[in-house]
Design a binder for these strands. Structure first.
Lengths: 330, 330
DNA sequence: CTCAAAAGATAAAACGTTTTAATTATGTCG
DNA sequence: CGACATAATTAAAACGTTTTATCTTTTGAG
């Protein structure tokens, strides 16, 4: 039934050490012996046992991907591209959906991972630094982090916020609003910051820019905005929402209250999920290059595993102009 | 640095066997000894090594999920819910994105999985049956399969096709069209079959129902339909598309050619991805209960692992009425 | 032809667990 | 108090690899 390296060795008429060497260290074994072993393995359709190998070799050739959840478009793309890169380098990808930090730490050891990518809201920078070790380097997504065994990949969210501000300001809008993401989320905070900073430089004070709660969710943004407007507050000329879903929530709320987008109010999102092309109107947004980030993250983990030092990587966003924003008519 | 069970045993002043037993077989060890071991483990913050354990115990307490890819909403939900169930039963979930059958087979052995869920277009029923063994039972999604160590979960796609037919027929439409999914995909075929069968029973012959290629993709469906209509073929009264994305492609094509949905043409999709609520008009479709399927699949794998025999499970769809279909005006 | 060096093969140890079989401690009953 | 059953502990084997250190064979130079 289960065929081990022992049977392969016997079948090929060599010792297990030779059998192992033939498969893992070509060059150290005579070509014809090697061929004999390989042939035997093929004949018995031998598949090495990962656990035996990992136990002995002290490296699992597995890299981890730690996530809060798998819903949301980004996660799928990330997993897909990372998987591709890892596989091509002979590594397995272990996706772990975890809900707390200790769970990450435990799995890091338990699974004896060679390295991992962590994409997780609530890691604070201090803790993050301590988690990364030489035997398990880490890449943190959307976290400002850099150490000998840790790399951070920043999405340049502050810059994206600025970009949004410049764009809307450039269209002539002066009464602006921001819909905030999830508190504690690095990107959410950066986007808000950048947006407000840029406006301030144009002489629009922070106090004059309302910031509503959006939680990165459509429903929450919808509620927030509707409530805000129904309370008699003035309708803004343009809204920058912290992600696309909340932008869509805003559009729904505006429509229900009789405002047209973009004629009455301009709305822009952030991320550029595929939904943006399907909404009515299609959504102007700032694209985060999901696939590229996945590729870069995977490659970076492999780089760290090779022992090279961590660094800080920045990924720029790209403004994608669609139909949800229009110039102010003065 | 790495703390093994040996140190724990030493720290607690017992043998490794006792230490192991204390942690894994409570009851066989004296309560106070047990407590001492647990305390020692805590003090040293001992985390057992998965590979050592798996190697010896001959079970990995890991179940696999084999997929073509991770893009697409379904995959994320499936992974999320399965993960939840597995985790709650002390199992790890290993998601494997694979592109060919041999890759599945190799990983099944290589990772020494205790069981797995396979959601993969191109598995034929014959092969599927042979892959499932007592030491690694399998659950196949969307595949007609049943054996001592294999369970199939059918999405009742034929029934869904019939449902679509009945609905559109009930609205008064007589000149109907189907946009097909991906050839070789079980669901695609069943949906088509069921749709055509039901219409036939209403006296609408198969030859009078055009079937276009959609490949489960928006762009492909868009192309197909546009081309079809531009070639001078008559526009149908109603279209049933094999999934939501292709339905959206159809709507785009129709709009571009000057037809309104649903006034001129009714369009319905299948799956009920979240996009359906955002399109214009919102999309009438047949919901597949993604989360429930994930839960059921995970539970079923665990059931098979316990040695219970495989079976065939059917999951019904649910017609969700939105705005993309309207009664025929005669 | 001899000997040293290089190449090739191997036995045995190691990885960190769990489990089996054997041993020791504890309690019970006549 | 001795014998015996039972409970608790343990030493040692096992899981399937890889690697180290050792041994054997081949090669090439003198």
């Amino acid at each position: 039934m289960k065929v081990t390296i022992r049977e392969v060795a016997r079948e090929a008429g060599v010792s297990v050490a030779t059998a192992s060497n033939a498969m893992n260290h070509p060059g150290i074994v005579r070509p014809e012996t090697r061929e004999a072993v390989l042939e035997a393995a093929r004949r018995l359709s031998y598949v090495p046992n990962a656990n035996g190998r990992r136990l002995r070799a002290k490296q699992s050739r597995t890299i981890g991907l730690f996530l809060n959840a798998m819903n949301g478009e980004f996660y799928g793309v990330l997993a897909d591209t990372m998987n591709q890169v890892c596989r091509s380098q002979g590594y397995e990808l272990q996706i772990c959906i975890v809900s707390n930090l200790d769970s990450i730490r435990a799995r890091l050891q338990w699974l004896a991972l060679d390295g991992a990518v962590v994409f997780w809201d609530a890691v604070d920078e201090q803790t993050a630094g301590e988690m990364a070790t030489s035997e398990c380097p880490l890449v943190f997504l959307a976290l400002n982090q850099q150490g000998p065994h840790a790399t951070g990949i920043l999405f340049e969210s502050a810059e994206n916020g600025r970009m949004a501000a410049e764009y809307l300001y450039g269209l002539g809008h002066r009464r602006l609003m921001h819909v905030f993401g999830r508190p504690g989320n690095y990107d959410a905070e950066q986007r808000c910051q950048g947006f407000l900073d840029a406006l301030e430089e144009h002489g629009i004070g922070r106090e004059s820019v309302p910031v509503l709660d959006g939680l990165f969710e459509r429903a929450a943004a919808y509620q927030s905005l509707k409530q805000y407007l129904q309370a008699g507050n003035p309708v803004p000329e343009a809204i920058f929402a912290s992600n696309d879903l909340s932008a869509i929530g805003c559009i729904t709320a505006l429509n229900e209250l009789g405002y047209r987008v973009p004629e009455d109010v301009s709305v822009m999102g952030c991320d550029d999920i595929s939904l943006c092309e399907y909404t009515n109107p299609t959504l102007t947004t700032i694209r985060t290059h999901f696939q590229e980030i996945g590729t870069v993250a995977a490659q970076e983990v492999l780089r760290l595993i090779r022992g090279e030092p961590g660094r800080l990587i920045r990924q720029n966003g790209l403004l994608v102009e669609r139909k949800s924003c229009a110039p102010a008519d003065r």
